[in-house]
Design a binder for these strands. Structure first.
Lengths: 366, 366
DNA sequence: CGCTTACCGGTAAGCGCTTACCGAAATCGG
DNA sequence: CCGATTTCGGTAAGCGCTTACCGGTAAGCG
């Protein structure tokens, strides 16, 4: 593994030491504020550092300290083709990443971003390579099986963001249950819609499953008719949502009075598809989302949705991960509160009502 | 700098070697495909690796190879408060980053993301620390003076994205000139607007300066009246754009027939501000942007703008940086072509005309 | 069947840093 | 004024990996 090499020799701590006329130990001490170097020594070292533009090598420091000060964040990208609409969904990941970055910064960590393609060959190996470059791992999507997570977790602590808690890793998520509950309450009780559907997200997403489950029980409890099943299977993407609506319409099925979409992207696609067929939202069919991505408020009509504290998700992921470095054990799941954001796609007319929200909940249940 | 330490000992190459009954050299060779290990040896090593869940330490590899396989990307964040609208502008950076990531991946590199606050104390020191963790540096905003860049460039190659070429670094940007030129041509010649203004971006941004300069000369050459100056000073943000319009209106000034905004964000803010005063876009005042961020097409009216190949910018930044590792010299500026995207905010009615575009240009001129 | 040539794989020397350990110099008290 | 304390700073031992170098074994040849 020869690799690219820098042409000119970069100054090392030895160069600094000899130029300053001290030992490398002193240079290190001055640079790291350890021990109590004499002012004189200090000055000499600093002068030499400046003169040589010395920058300590991170790899060497990491090796010596057994601490890289890096967390790796991995997400899944679907090939290299980006759908026009897909671009927007980047936002969701990116806002989380920003949160991670902010939290990391506070601890002097930096964030190593990496992605694996959906059709990549050896995902576990790739993940291992990334893990080797970091002190901790944050996984955006479900890209590793539980045993694979367990293996890797022996090397670096792992936090997942759209997975489920495992004995070796921690999952951070939002309170899907109370979000859907608030939504159902609003649609069924307050608006009186008696026939509603859940336009599902990724079939293997734990969050989607949780939302679907709560949807069914709550809608049933509220006495509404529900539509679910394969015909309502989306994939979290805008096109996915649009396709569901289109084929439903093509097959001549009656639409429900309201459609609860698994996320905002799906809602966006659904609304486009409905508009294309001349179906009015919310007059003919109400549509709601989940996430409250920034574009949600710019849709027509503005989207009623459940706000996740997206950036907080990232901050929490890092903080939890950080606290796990050097200490195993502790809770395996962190749940953040959500908030119902009522705009107009549900049938309300621009009244900024705000629904229930809950305090953060930590649970150890799997 | 004690730092956090992992509790359980992580297996090293020595553990693998002794478990496999071979030397560490063999383990390394098997893992890196160097030399020609016997199938037998190979198998023993792989078995041991699997049994121990061995993951080679990135820092040690980096130290030994003199190659970290990491590029650092740094951007400037404005405090931790994010304006509602600001969120959207993340997109621009993030799409570039995605491009960097994709290009990096192709070379087996990962991307270290880091930000410095606008009000951070010691920026150069922070940058140095980041540089120490990477093989190359990509700077999003102008955050270092030329001498500071020069210092750091002795340690790692540097590519800037919104700076200007320096003897020690490379700048990657879009062809501002031809973008503005196409815009002016469309507005003045095709639409016949005789009075136009440039709503400026960040005062110290080279791109903004270039756009402003071309705006003036081209508009003048086309025979249009121009409005520029302090009253038209924005800052690339939506609020910045809105404020300019608001104070212009407050001071009772006449608005020009068309406003060329420094970027899409600014245009978004300007359009909001105009709408709030009941001024119609494009009937009363035409507005154009620059960048073509994804939301641009969802604005009302859809924004006429200059499309930058945003992701390409990132890909190019990495590729240029990569080629600079180990080899100094070469060109100091890379310019990517842009494309005029005509939508409706300029006064056109939904005809998807596409303007001139130019091939990539590389220049060594400062 | 003995010697040359290949082929493998082990030993050990770094890569650039931190820090335990220890000796030298400086400081203090009696 | 000298020994007991401190205080500073140097020496050297790693951190976990790659790889140059070399010795041993097996295969190839006359």
């Amino acid at each position: 593994m020869a690799g690219v090499r820098r042409a000119k020799a970069i100054p090392t701590i030895y160069d600094v030491a000899s130029r300053a006329g001290v030992s490398i130990a002193s240079v290190s001490r001055v640079l790291n504020g350890q021990g109590s170097p004499k002012a004189e020594t200090r000055k000499k070292v600093l002068r030499a550092v400046r003169a040589l533009s010395f920058v300590p090598d991170g790899a060497a420091r990491a090796l010596s300290n057994n601490l890289k000060e890096v967390v790796a964040v991995v997400f899944r990208r679907g090939g290299e083709v980006a759908f026009e609409d897909e671009e927007e969904s980047l936002l969701f990941l990116d806002v989380i990443n920003r949160g991670i970055e902010i939290a990391a910064q506070r601890r002097g960590f930096d964030v190593l971003i990496s992605s694996v393609g959906t059709n990549d060959e050896n995902v576990p190996a790739r993940l291992a390579a990334i893990a080797g470059k970091a002190d901790g791992l944050i996984l955006h999507d479900q890209m590793l099986s539980e045993p694979e997570i367990a293996r890797l977790a022996d090397v670096v602590p792992i936090v997942t963001l759209a997975g489920r808690p495992t004995p070796k890793s921690i999952n951070v998520r939002c309170d899907n249950g109370s979000g859907i509950r608030a939504l159902i309450h609003h649609l069924v009780i307050e608006h009186g819609y008696r026939n509603i559907a859940y336009l599902s997200g990724g079939a293997d997403s734990p969050d989607n499953l949780a939302r679907a489950r709560v949807f069914e029980t709550e809608a049933f409890a509220a006495g509404a008719q529900i539509q679910v099943g394969p015909a309502w299977q989306g994939d979290y993407s805008a096109v996915g949502g649009a396709n569901v609506i289109a084929s439903l319409l093509d097959s001549g099925r009656d639409l429900p009075r309201a459609i609860v979409c698994a996320n905002d992207q799906t809602a966006l696609g659904a609304m486009h598809a409905l508009a294309r067929r001349g179906i009015k939202v919310p007059d003919d069919v109400a549509v709601t989302g989940f996430d409250d991505v920034p574009v949600a408020r710019h849709l027509h009509p503005p989207l009623t949705t459940v706000r996740q504290p997206i950036k907080e998700l990232g901050v929490t992921a890092f903080d939890v991960l950080y606290s796990r470095m050097g200490t195993a054990g502790g809770q395996h799941e962190v749940v953040l509160p959500v908030q119902l954001i009522i705009r107009e796609s549900c049938g309300c007319s621009h009244r900024p009502v705000v629904g229930p929200s809950r305090a953060p909940v930590a649970s150890s249940e799997t």
